Every structure is written in C-alpha cells, then in structure tokens.
Computed example of a mutant assay.
Amino acid sequence: MRAANHTGLPQFLLLGLSEDPEVQSILFGLFLSIYLITVLGNLLIILATTSDSHLHSPMYFFLCNLSFVDIGFISSTVPKMLVNIQENKKDISYIECLTQAFSFMTFFGVDDFLLTVMAYDRFVAICYPLQYTLIMNPQLCGCLVLISWFIILCVDLINILLLMQLNFSSGTEIPHFFCELPHILKLARSDSLINNIFLNVVTVLLGLFPVLGIMFSYFQIVSSLMKMSSNASRYKAFSTCGSHLCVVFLFYGSGLGVYLSSAVTHSSQASMNASVMYTVVTPMMNPFIYSLRNKDVKGALGRLFSRAVSGLSLNCVFRTMGIL
C-alpha cells in the first residue's frame, strides 16, 4: 500500500468487533438499543435536574453536566459503528477519524474531571456543611466545569495537532470499532515517539490527579463520618455519596480492566472487547445508578412524568372539545 499523509486524505478501515454477518446483526440491535437507552436516560436526568426546583443545587448541577458529557461520550463512537454495520462497510475518512478521536478523548477527559469535582462537592457538603452554600456557590461551580473543559480541550488539541504530523498508509486497518488514539499511533509509518511520550505523560497526570483528588475527598469524608455520634446521621450523610461511588468504581474499574487486558493478553481483540465497558456500558449505567439510588432524582422523575401525563391528558381533552 502506498504511503500517504493527511494532505492525501487517506481512508482508514475500522475492523469492528466481528466480521461475522450474523454476529454483526446482533451487535447492531444490541448497540442501537444501548445507545437509545443511554441518550434517553441521560436526557431524562438533564430534564429532571433543570426543571425541578428541588434539584437546583451544586450536586445536581454537576450531575446534569455529567449526563450531557455521557451523551457526547457514547455519541462519539457508537453511531459511526452502527452506520458501518448497516451499510456493510468499514471505511472511515481521515478527517472523520481525527474528529472521532478528538471528541472521544474530550468527553472521556471531562467525564474524569467531573467525577473528581463531584467528589469535592460531597467532601464540602459533609465535612463543612455550614459553609457549603458559601463555598459551593454558582460562580465556583461554573468555573470548575469550565476549567475542566478548557484543560481537556487544550490537551486534546495538542494531541490531534501532533497526530496530524504523522504519515499513514492508505487503507490502514484499525483493529477497533472506533478511532482510539493509542491504536492509531501504533499504525503510523513515521516516528511517533513524541506523540507517545506526550500521550503517556498526559494520561498519567490527568489520570493520577483526579484519582488522588477522589481518594483524598473520600478519606476526609470517612474521617468526618467516624466522628459522628449518631448512626442515623452517619448513614444519611454517606448515602448521598452512594451513587457517585458506584459511578466512580464503574468508570475507573472498567478503564483498569481495559489496561490489564491489554497488558496481560497483548490481544487487540481482548482490549477492544474490554473497552466496550467504559465506552458504552458506563454511560448507559449512570442514569440508572442515579435514578435508582437517589430518592431526590426518583422524585423529580416522578413529577416530570406526572406533568407529562397531565399535559397529554389536557391536550386530549382540548382536542376532543374542539372536535365536538
């Protein structure tokens, strides 16, 4: 195959999860269902947190942003895979591949930062309850979200600019169902040492500091809970962290699973299968975790559905009266 750089707009080939037509049909139905459930579930969380005055607090402001990011997270990978399966093709253009890699890294990074910010929010709420509204004011909450986006966008832009300096062969096969940066770098025909160094440094820094932040926050939370004399107060305080902890374990646990599967088996297929967990399953599970474990969210969703049903009933009545 002839070599081509980005000016020649080479085509890449996404090998996907399977080449078996029967398996692809099953995968199409499965991933389409997961995608629709994920988008609908996170949209409901966004509607519930924005429309219900009971949820106008920092905790649910961050949850609303997390739901938005999860929609973008899964939308950066699954739709292209569904289109390729439906049209029985594997190709993805150079520009589409760069766009997919950039959007995936961005939403993944912001998701990581938001989980850290949410841990800090729970730390302030439990350890400094009297100063909570003063510390977690709307200006600080907005700044934390904007800073998260700014840092990740800058880092990912550098990653993409470095990637654009590399040469690739036309028709390069990517052993994945989406354009993941580490896989792309392995397939470059030119020297990608700088790209790999920058990627590894950024991964360590942006992975280590959020994890340390979450661990520090929960260490302080547990210390404060142990000082509480009432078991009921202790349980009530810690229950507010339950949903966030579940999401944290799911997010970092699946990411660790991908890393371990790659390191132990050295199989691209094993790594690709493991990556389905954090790219597809995690965004789908987040709405269920927060809606099932959080009574405030369940109450808001109930009121949202009640208003929707009442609106439909009134609409039917008015239409009937109009017809009569």
Rank of each mutant, 00 (worst) to 15 (best):
I45C: 06
L47I: 10
L47V: 14
A48W: 09
A48G: 10
T50H: 10
T50C: 08
T50G: 09
S51Q: 14
S51N: 15
S53A: 11
H54N: 15
H54S: 15
H54V: 10
H54C: 12
L55C: 08
H56I: 12
H56A: 14
P58H: 08
M59T: 15
Y60F: 15
F61P: 00
F62I: 13
L63A: 09
N65V: 03
S67C: 12
D70P: 07
D70L: 10
I71F: 12
G72L: 04
G72E: 04
I74S: 03
I74P: 02
S75V: 01
V78C: 05
V78M: 06
V78A: 05
P79K: 04
K80T: 13
M81R: 03
N84Q: 10
E87V: 07
K89D: 12
K90M: 15
K90H: 12
D91L: 06
I92T: 06
Y94N: 00
E96C: 00
C97M: 06
C97S: 10
Q100D: 00
Q100F: 00
A101P: 01
S103G: 05
F104Y: 01
M105E: 00
G109L: 01
G109F: 02
V110H: 02
D111A: 07
F113K: 04
L114E: 04
L115K: 02
M118D: 06
A119D: 10
Y120E: 13
Y120M: 08
Y120H: 07
D121H: 11
D121F: 05
R122F: 12
R122W: 06
V124C: 04
A125M: 13
I126H: 03
I126Q: 02
C127W: 06
Y128G: 06
Y128V: 08
Y128Q: 14
Y128E: 14
L130K: 11
Y132C: 09
T133F: 14
T133K: 15
L134M: 12
I135W: 11
N137I: 06
N137Y: 08
Q139S: 13
L140D: 02
C141T: 07
C141K: 04
G142M: 07
L144H: 01
L146Y: 11
I147V: 15
I147G: 08
I147D: 09
I147P: 06
I147Q: 08
I147N: 10
W149G: 02
W149T: 05
W149N: 06
L153T: 11
C154E: 13
V155F: 03
D156Q: 03
L157H: 13
I160C: 01
L161S: 05
L162Y: 08
L163T: 00
